[in-house]
């Protein structure tokens, strides 16, 4: 991963500052268009960082999530002019102009805010994140380690899940029930072995860490987290730009 683009070279905390700047602006802006351009700027950063293609599936997921968010909210607002009714003649499924605007804002705001997270994850090795958080933000090492080991377990769990699915299929277990309740119940024979395996794994890992002096007291670190000139430049321009844009928009 290192050296792929300037984004990869930045200190993780610099990227966190950028993330916070985007969140701040998403709250400051009260019109859809500025928020849309804010979101576009996040995607542009991903493009320059050569990770746009990599994070596209995550972005797609976030869009779907925002759409669901929008649909759940839009029917609940009664104020303003009615522009559309789901069942004509009744009050069911009424959408108003105020509701439409507010929900669009809400969805776009959420989208802009959350889109920085995949960019952050795609350009930062978890290890660097730990070092930066522990060294610069004084986060207790145990918490940082917990976060990273759980991230590390995800691919292992995926492999194990497919193993369990294959094993259950080999015993003619039907995973494709039509009815939603049946489908949900069908998950239990998959989840149970997976859970048991994970508990076993976690125990082995705990023992393995214990035999290598985990929690012995103050520890040192092989890697160190540094701010380069580039980081300082990016952080100050983020802060400056956010301040200027916020002031302009609030006037």
């Amino acid at each position: 991963m290192p050296g792929k683009s300037f984004l990869h070279k930045l200190n993780p905390l610099t990227k966190v500052v950028w993330s916070l700047a985007v969140i701040t602006l998403a709250f400051v802006y009260q019109q859809p268009l500025p928020i849309l351009s804010l979101w576009a700027s996040v995607l542009a950063v991903a493009l320059i960082g050569k990770v746009l293609r990599e994070i596209l599936p995550a972005i797609r997921g976030l869009i779907i999530f925002a759409a669901i968010f929008f649909l759940f909210q839009v029917f609940l607002i009664d104020e303003g002019q009615v522009v559309f009714t789901l069942v004509p003649g009744t009050g069911i499924g009424r959408i108003t102009d105020v509701g439409l605007k507010a929900c669009t804002m809400l969805a776009l705001r959420m989208l802009a805010m959350t889109s920085t997270i995949p960019v952050l994850l795609a350009t930062t090795p978890p290890k660097d994140m730990i070092v930066a958080f522990v060294e610069k933000l004084k986060v207790p090492y145990v918490y940082a380690l917990m976060l990273v080991t759980s991230l590390r377990f995800i691919p292992t769990l995926q492999e194990e899940l497919s193993l369990v699915i294959q094993a259950q299929r080999a015993r003619a277990y039907d995973l494709e029930g039509r009815n939603i309740i049946k489908r949900f119940l069908a998950l239990i024979p998959l989840a149970l072995p997976l859970l048991l395996m994970s508990v076993q794994r976690a125990r082995t890992m705990a023992i393995s860490m214990e035999t290598r002096a985990f929690g012995a007291g103050p520890r040192t670190s092989l890697h160190t987290s540094t701010f380069q000139l580039l980081d300082i430049g990016v952080i100050s321009s983020c802060l400056l730009l956010t301040a200027v844009l916020a002031v302009v928009s609030l006037h």
């Binding site: 860490m209 290598r212 985990f214 103050p218 520890r219 040192t220 670190s221 092989l222 160190t224």
Partner: peptide
């Protein structure tokens, strides 16, 4: 980093 883990825990210098 795997090899470093135990050494870091024992507070060995970098």
């Amino acid at each position: 980093d795997e090899l470093a883990f135990g050494l870091e825990n024992l507070a060995v210098s970098r």
